[in-house]
């Protein structure tokens, strides 16, 4: 990472606002989980992801954050974002199979991404390449058995070029991770594996940079303590913002909230 690539707080705000605008224009929900994951995605893509690296968005419902991140890199344009969730669009509600080269795998059903990342990392090893593979999961999808299958596989095969980022906002589809599965301190469930675990503030770019910069000799898991609906007063830590779209008044309030951060 070089300083020239380093995102400023204004960069982060600009992307958050663009995300809100895109969701407002399209009348689409899933905003809360996008705002909890956006900061990490921006730091990974802008500051760490090399052309030969791979990023797998396992929490496919954060597609909006991914599209806006690619927009910030100039890989998608405003015209593309205007089509989000529309008819005849390149940008469906979850990452698509074809049409966007930066998106290697279509996701949306939870519990697939980590296996796809592990397979990618294994293939890189067979090719003798040491590129990195980043996989961003939600916290709720650690209730999927396949995610644990993938972790067992990745650690057994010592796929140390994999970095798992967990968006630990503690809210899932119909309750908190604590209410649904006693998983409010997710990292405690992971500690028995031969992995390197860091628990960081997922909205602190410097903390994310430090976590992503280290090159441990074990698979790294970055548990990001995040806030669903981060930066928008009426959304933060509220489950309904997993689903709801914004109305005009809410949108204006949200933009003001982000501006004042």
């Amino acid at each position: 990472m070089t300083d020239s690539k380093k995102l400023s707080s204004e960069d982060l705000k600009r992307h958050r606002k663009r995300l809100l605008r895109m969701h407002f224009d399209s009348g689409v929900g899933h905003i809360g989980g996008n705002l909890s994951a956006l900061d990490a995605m921006l730091v990974v893509f802008h500051e760490f992801l090399a052309p030969t690296d791979t990023f797998v968005l396992s929490k496919g419902h954060a597609a909006g954050a991914l599209y806006v991140t690619l927009w910030g890199l100039g890989r998608l344009g405003d015209d593309d974002l205007k089509q989000f969730h529309g008819e005849d669009t390149l940008l469906p509600g979850h990452p698509p199979t074809i049409g966007i080269p930066d998106i290697r795998f279509a996701t949306g059903s939870l519990g697939h991404g980590l296996s796809l990342a592990a397979g990618t990392a294994l293939g890189l090893r067979f090719r003798g390449e040491n590129s990195r593979v980043f996989c961003l999961t939600s916290d709720g999808e650690w209730q999927e058995g396949s995610t644990w299958e993938a972790l067992i596989f990745a650690t057994h095969h010592a796929l140390t070029n994999v970095t798992i980022l967990i968006d630990h906002n503690e809210l899932q589809g119909f309750g908190t991770t604590s209410e649904v599965a006693s998983m409010s301190r997710l990292w405690t469930h992971l500690e028995s594996f031969d992995v390197d675990i860091l628990v960081v503030d997922g909205h602190d770019p410097d903390a994310l940079r430090d976590a992503l910069s280290a090159t441990p000799d074990r698979l790294r898991i970055i548990v990001m303590k995040t806030v669903k609906g981060h930066g928008v007063s009426f959304m933060e830590n509220r489950m309904e913002w997993h689903y709801l779209p914004l109305n005009e008044v809410q949108y204006q309030t949200a933009i003001r909230d982000i501006s004042s951060l």
């Binding site: 290697r104 795998f105 519990g111 697939h112 296996s115 796809l116 990342a117 592990a118 397979g119 990618t120 294994l122 293939g123 890189l124 067979f126 090719r127 058995g145 396949s146 299958e149 993938a150 067992i152 596989f153 057994h156």
Partner: peptide, 24 residues
């Protein structure tokens, strides 16, 4: 290159997909 993926068929298939995506 012979991998016993264990009793984890879901993971095995997705790993296989990712490998095939790389041309294996």
């Amino acid at each position: 290159r012979f991998i016993n993926a264990g009793l984890a068929e879901q993971n095995m298939i997705s790993v296989a997909a990712a490998l095939a995506a790389q041309g294996f």
